[in-house]
Nucleic acid binder design. Structure first.
Length: 423
RNA sequence: GGAGAGGUGGCCGAGUGGUCGAAGGCACCAGAUUGCUAAUCUGGCGUACUGGGCAACCGGUACCGAGGGUUCGAAUCCCUCCCUCUCCGCCA
């Protein structure tokens, strides 16, 4: 959520920035108009209420004759106030609705561009492996090894579902455990196992609602939303709290399944395990002091890169332009691993600095000693997404006989297994 | 799911229709004092919106789990919901 005061004071700046994201700057005028009406009414209402309080107190001491006359008058005032309160509530709702639909503003250092074609490759690391044979896509490798079962996934759940089997399941579990150990033991993150179903307020807090309602699964009767990412519960951990400044920065990590409808992506990436309705992910979330969030973003990206580096898989860092930031990021970098089987750079991590955008929605604040509460900045990034990391591992580590060499760092997590072969 | 108890400021805890944004205590901050390491005294100490000074401030309004209702007026009475605790039932 944007700061309404910023919109009031610098509407032209905000419009310029909004336009850079591809959103409609006309929304700003609608917000301003609604805000002006709300303030006007609030002021009138405040004055009526002040009068009621004042005169009600006097009424208690009035003479009996006066009392009846005054009481009728006050009753009328009370009705006016009630009507005003109803109108105000409606205006506030309208106001909030408009504000919740506005995207975050890009930072000034974000390159201006209209869509993903104008993103910038910041750097590339590692060398692409040279194959003496034609590298196969992971779905072929997985099926032949019997470690991915697509048919039965479809049988049980439908398209975009699969089973990991035997060493396939174990390989994913090894990746998760290894990543979490890296996060918690070397990169300073505290591990969580959060709720996977959360209420509406929580999803509004992370800015996945109200705009992306149709991308999530929910239980309407119970007011539960299935988390589309651990970012939702982790970012909201300190919702409606005021933290002491010394506690910042806070680094959190969690492995969770993620649930997404993927309605918008129907027909895209249908082959293999790249995009499903359910997938596993190790997520990183930071709650930081506003003065440090830009450098914290760099460190976050680096934390994601380190996973690729240790797996010895080539990767690159891509900076999103203003038109490809998404709804809540003020600045964003993707980390992409190269997968030789599908001949594609796969987005395995997306690291965002959300600035105070989520903090305002979730009301996450901090206070310097003796100071006023201020909003924190929140960041999030995958560390990494499992299906795509698994794809990259399978495809980069495949051998000409269709077996998979287990990356060295994972072997301690695989009971020492060095090679996955057909069972 | 059933029965009972309860939800007040960072914490503990008063308050049952007006003088309560809310006693008192603890914690915390500032100052004073004592020279013996901690105690004493004084003062301050919620959040949001809003008006003015457009800064350290001053005023208005709202908030005592949430939402409705009664009333001239509600933390205080009524209704609904949520949550916590205890007991029972059920179940991974």
């Amino acid at each position: 959520m944007l700061d309404i005061k910023l919109i009031r004071e610098q509407p032209d700046y905000v419009k310029t920035k909004i336009a850079q994201t591809g959103a409609d700057p006309g929304d700003i005028d609608r917000v301003l108009e609604a805000d002006a009406r709300r303030r006007r009414l609030q002021h009138e209402l405040d004055e009526m209420r002040a009068r009621r309080t004042r005169e009600s107190k006097e009424l208690g001491k009035a003479t009996p004759e006066e009392r009846d006359r005054k009481r009728a008058e006050m009753r009328q005032l009370g009705e006016q106030i009630s009507a005003g309160e109803r109108d105000l509530a409606a205006l506030e709702e309208e106001n909030t609705r408009l504000l919740l639909m506005l995207p975050n503003l890009p930072r000034d250092w974000v390159p201006v561009g209209k869509d993903d074609s104008e993103n910038r490759i910041v750097r590339t690391e590692g060398v692409e492996r040279e194959f003496t044979f034609e590298p196969k896509p992971h779905w072929e490798l997985g099926e032949r090894l019997g470690i991915i079962d697509f048919e039965r996934g479809v049988k049980l759940s439908g398209t975009r579902f699969h089973f990991l089997v035997g060493m396939g399941a174990r390989l994913e579990r090894a990746l998760i455990a290894w990543m979490l150990d890296l996060k918690t033991q070397e990169q300073g993150y505290l591990e969580f196992a959060p709720p996977l179903m959360v209420n509406t307020a929580t999803v509004i807090g992370s800015a996945h609602l109200p705009k992306f309602e149709d991308t999530m699964y929910r239980d309407k009767e119970e007011d539960f939303w299935f988390v589309p990412t651990a970012e939702v519960p982790l970012t909201n951990l300190y919702a409606r709290e005021i933290l002491e400044a010394e506690r910042l920065p806070i680094y959190m990590t969690a492995y969770t399944p993620c649930f997404r409808r993927e309605k918008m992506s129907a027909g895209r990436d249908v082959r293999g395990i790249k995009r499903g309705h359910q997938f596993d992910k190790v997520e990183m979330v930071k709650v930081v002091h506003p003065a440090t969030s830009d450098e914290e973003l760099d460190k976050l990206v680096e934390n994601a890169c380190e996973v690729c580096r240790r797996l010895k898989i080539p990767f690159r860092v891509v900076q999103m332009c203003t038109g490809d930031l998404g709804f809540s990021a003020a600045g964003k970098y993707d980390v992409e691993m190269y997968a030789p089987g599908v001949r594609e750079w796969l987005e395995v991590s997306s690291c965002s600095n959300c600035w105070d955008f989520q903090a305002r929605r979730a009301q996450i604040r901090f206070r310097e000693k003796g100071g006023k509460p201020e909003f924190v900045h929140t960041l999030n990034g995958s560390g990494l997404g499992l299906p795509r990391t698994l794809i990259a591992v399978l495809e980069n580590y495949q051998n000409d006989d269709g077996s998979i060499t287990v990356p060295e760092v994972l072997r301690p997590y695989m009971g020492g297994v060095e090679r996955i072969t057909r069972a």
